[in-house]
Computed example of a mutant assay.
Amino acid sequence: MGEPSLRERALRHLARRDHSRAELARKLASHGEHDEIQAVIARMGELGLQSDSRYAEVFVRSKSARFGETRLRRELTLRGIDRDLIDAALATECVESELDRARSVLRGRFSTPPTETREWARQARFLQTRGFAPELIRKLLKEPHDESA
């Protein structure tokens, strides 16, 4: 058996999960020339096997319950997705408000509201690493804790 072709390698990667164009190019880089790789990726796009917009929508849908908009944007940018596609994916897939998502993430991790400055800072850092905006974090940590939630 010979070495798999560039096209076969691309198909194998895409069969496992969606990939952005940049991810797929990076994974195929050591197996062919740049122009050849771009041609294979373009063909995968023509066939509907690779789509950056679909990738962005799936990524946002799978991660939006755990992460804030800032982190989602950063992660998608690192994966080579265009800003317009990121905006579209966030608009269509983030049905819950940013505040509701932050509240859900916070309540999932911390059962009690912060009572002292040290605990407040700990919870704020947690939300910040999850990609929620500082003003949203302040607003959320200042609101009274609802036991029914």
Rank of each mutant, 00 (worst) to 15 (best):
V95F: 09
Y55S: 11
L47P: 03
A29S: 12
T70H: 05
I37A: 05
T92C: 09
G48W: 13
H13V: 04
G68H: 01
A56F: 01
G48Y: 12
L24W: 09
V40L: 05
L49N: 07
A149M: 08
L11I: 13
R138K: 08
E23R: 12
L11Q: 12
G2Q: 13
E46H: 11
Q50L: 15
L14T: 08
L24H: 10
L76A: 08
E75Q: 13
F126I: 03
S148E: 14
E57D: 10
E8V: 05
R43S: 12
D146R: 15
M1K: 11
I137R: 03
S148K: 13
A22S: 12
A29K: 07
M44W: 01
R26V: 01
G2L: 14
T77P: 00
W120G: 00
D87I: 02
E135I: 03
R71T: 02
L72T: 06
R74M: 08
E96Q: 15
A124I: 06
K27W: 13
G80Q: 10
K63W: 09
D146K: 12
E147F: 08
P144H: 01
L136F: 04
V40F: 06
R130E: 02
V60D: 06
M1T: 02
F132H: 04
A88S: 12
R7Q: 13
A102Q: 04
T129R: 14
L141H: 09
A29H: 03
H31M: 04
G32M: 07
R118P: 06
D35V: 01
